[in-house]
Computed example of a mutant assay.
Amino acid sequence: MRMQGVKVGALALVAAAVLAACGGSDGFPTLTGDKPLVIGHRGAAGYLPDHTLEGYKKAIELGADFIEPDLVATKDGVLVARHEPNITGTTDVSQRAEFAGRKTKKTVDGVVEEGWFVSDFTLAELKTLRAIQPLAERDQSYNGKFQIPTFEEVLDLAKSESVRVGRTIGVYPETKHPTYHVNQGLKLEDRLLAILAKYGYTSKSSPVIVQSFEVSNLKYLRTKTQVRLVQLVDADDVNPDGSISLVAPYDKPYDFAVAGDSRTFASLLTSSGLKEVKTYADGIGPWKPYLIPSKLVDENKDGKPDDLNGDGKIDERDRVMMPATDVLKNAHAAGLFVHPYTFRSEARRLASNFKGDPKAEYRLFYDLGVDGVFADFPDHAKAARDN
């Protein structure tokens, strides 16, 4: 998934009322009353390069209940874990002279990108590459050390780690850019279904949840499997006033754009939109500002946002959390669980209310009633939940 004040007392009262109504056994106002899931976003992305077996294992060691592989397809049709079809920023491919001629341009969700693409590499070729940390602010010392795993290798890891740690580790794959893959002759869904069937994962009780930003592929999957499905909900940005910015290609599911459907991602989160989502999915994965937005402030009324922490720049630390929207309440009313993304622990990614403490952000969303969180630092998510 892409990167990126409420009154806590009032929220706690709301949470208590919801909990009393649902009789939650763990003391959380989730859809079922169970503890919210900790989902290791791309593994343990805050510590190790994204989408590596080592990163997934780290996430499990840090307490993740699920690990999340983004799935793309190789030239020979193998599902592998990479954040995007374009692997320029997540592997050392640009440093490999033998693949210099593979650099090209492709259109992904209507946007022309330049780089190296998984669909131009066989699995054997891809296995010669090594993962790198895509965010410069994070530890770069593991660059070049870890291979790109296949989806089956991720499933095998989850199974073996479940035995080792004595608890079931779930896998939460995302089908990345389904329309792009169809245009490459590499439809993801049937390949995914075949692998899930091989592992016996075909029911709602299976330790797997499949997610996508597009809609038609989820509807197709619903006709073929009963594993849990999640509709992801994106946006372009958050405006200074806290409203959601919807600019292409992050304004709507790309299959909507291709079909000429005027609905946006925000349309999916209306009461009627959520009811429709429930006809083909079990949950939603919204970008977290859809649930609790934040805004910049201008106390001086000079037309410029205030630098709340006085560091000379404007970022998340200068934003103030706002009251929660009705999205979670309406989703739960429709019978949908809610797993927002992405929670990151760096101080510059935390609103002023949290005073640099990532656990404070988690607690706010747990009090609201989210059913799980996509976390780059699973240990922080677990600590905030369990303590």
Score class of each variant (00 low, 15 high):
346 E>M: 12
75 K>H: 04
251 D>H: 12
68 E>A: 11
86 N>L: 08
176 K>S: 06
50 D>T: 02
383 A>F: 03
161 E>L: 12
116 W>G: 12
90 T>V: 13
147 Q>M: 08
179 T>D: 10
131 A>V: 10
141 S>A: 12
270 T>K: 03
364 L>A: 14
315 D>M: 01
267 S>H: 05
294 S>G: 07
279 T>F: 04
141 S>H: 07
233 V>A: 15
113 E>P: 00
185 G>E: 04
248 A>M: 05
155 L>V: 09
250 Y>Q: 13
365 F>P: 02
306 D>V: 04
380 H>I: 01
293 P>I: 11
21 A>G: 07
28 F>L: 11
67 I>F: 06
322 M>S: 08
110 G>D: 05
19 L>C: 07
238 V>S: 11
324 A>T: 01
347 A>N: 10
327 V>I: 14
12 A>N: 12
69 P>W: 01
352 S>K: 14
220 Y>W: 10
191 R>Y: 02
212 S>N: 13
83 H>P: 06
119 S>D: 14
28 F>M: 12
207 P>F: 09
297 V>Q: 03
47 Y>L: 13
278 K>L: 08
374 F>V: 08
186 L>C: 09
199 Y>P: 05
27 G>V: 04
139 D>N: 11
256 F>M: 03
90 T>F: 01
322 M>R: 06
323 P>A: 15
253 P>V: 12
66 F>V: 07
197 A>F: 00
85 P>N: 15
